[in-house]
Amino acid sequence: MSDPAAGTPTPPPPSPWERERPARTHVTPPRAPLSRERVVEAAFTVLDRQGLDGLSMRQVAGELGVTVSALYAHVSSKDDLLELMYTRLFGGFEMPAPDPERWQEQVRDYARAGRKRLLSHRDMARISMAHVPFTAELLPHVESLLAVFRTAGLPDRIAAEAGDLISTYIDGFVLEEGMWQDRAARHSGDASSLARPDLGEMAAEMQNYFASLPPGDFPHLRALSGLMVTGSSDERFDIGLEIILRGLASYLPDPDSAAHTAPEAT
């Protein structure tokens, strides 16, 4: 038979022995098994979106689509999770062998890499300041940094403090950067935004303000108004680091003095 209007064959009715097939259902792909790595990655996602104050085990579980209790098979607590996140930042980082001729350059590289690590995720400076790096995974990094200071010839008392001084400087600098970032995000009306504030515009406003102060009362602020605030965080970080390095270098033994006091060969 054919459809006279369309000129095409009419499909036959189903045969009596043809089984009725169930409707095809959507097949959900299997979910990747939960692991410590997936928990940490989800925590970073929540951290970048909501900040440290909004990071909770419940939020991480929601990001993964699992119950909170499922997380505890891989992390023991929120503090354990934060420590894992902090440790993850050091993955792949290696200090070079200490070189007494290049120790300041090696410390500069270490500090810049540390700042870059902390800036890679929101509020990591706060997490860093709350977690001492004396875990099995991080102790080798502490050892390597101390080796740079001691090999350079710094007195042990100064070398012992120098590592903490550098770390505190990095944490504090990045913490300030994050605070200005959050302030700019709130000002824009998007508290979850990670957009950087316009540092150039902010610096210009502060410089103009300092320059407008009464010269009799604030001669130094006026004189330094164009130098105290710059539009480049990189430049400010490097200058502060240079001040620290030159201070540390002042503790190195004077080679000329050491030569004069050395006993003569017999």
Rank of each mutant, 00 (worst) to 15 (best):
M1C: 12
S2L: 09
A5Y: 10
A6W: 06
T8R: 13
T8E: 07
T8Q: 08
P9A: 15
T10Q: 12
T10L: 13
P11L: 13
P13Q: 05
S15T: 14
W17L: 13
R19V: 12
P22I: 08
P22T: 09
A23F: 09
T25V: 15
V27R: 10
P30C: 04
E37M: 06
F44R: 08
V46M: 05
Q50G: 08
G51D: 10
L52R: 13
L55C: 05
S56W: 10
Q59V: 02
V60F: 03
E63D: 14
L64H: 08
T67Q: 12
T67Y: 04
T67M: 04
L71W: 04
Y72T: 02
Y72I: 02
S76N: 07
S77Y: 08
S77C: 08
L81E: 02
E83S: 06
G91A: 09
G91S: 07
M95K: 05
P96S: 06
P98V: 06
R102E: 15
W103V: 01
V107S: 00
V107M: 03
R108Y: 10
D109Y: 02
Y110F: 15
R117T: 02
H121E: 00
D123Q: 02
D123R: 00
A130N: 11
H131W: 04
H131R: 15
A136F: 12
A136C: 04
E137P: 11
E143T: 14
S144Y: 03
S144M: 06
A147C: 07
R150Q: 14
T151Q: 11
G153S: 05
G153D: 03
P155N: 12
D156T: 08
I158N: 02
A159L: 06
A159V: 08
G163I: 00
D164F: 11
L165A: 13
L165Y: 09
T168H: 14
Y169P: 01
Y169L: 13
Y169S: 10
I170V: 15
I170L: 06
I170D: 00
E177Y: 02
G178N: 09
W180G: 02
Q181W: 01
R183I: 02
A184H: 14
S188G: 13
S192I: 03
S193N: 03
L194V: 10
A195K: 15
R196W: 10
G200K: 06
E201Q: 13
A203R: 07
Q207M: 06
Y209S: 09
A211I: 06
A211K: 12
S212M: 08
S212C: 12
L213V: 08
L213Y: 07
P214C: 10
P215D: 14
F218G: 07
F218D: 04
H220C: 06
R222L: 05
L224H: 11
G226Y: 03
G226W: 03
M228P: 01
M228D: 08
V229Q: 03
S232F: 06
F237N: 07
I243D: 11
I244M: 11
I244E: 00
I244L: 13
S250D: 15
S250F: 12
P253G: 08
P255I: 02
S257F: 14
A265V: 15
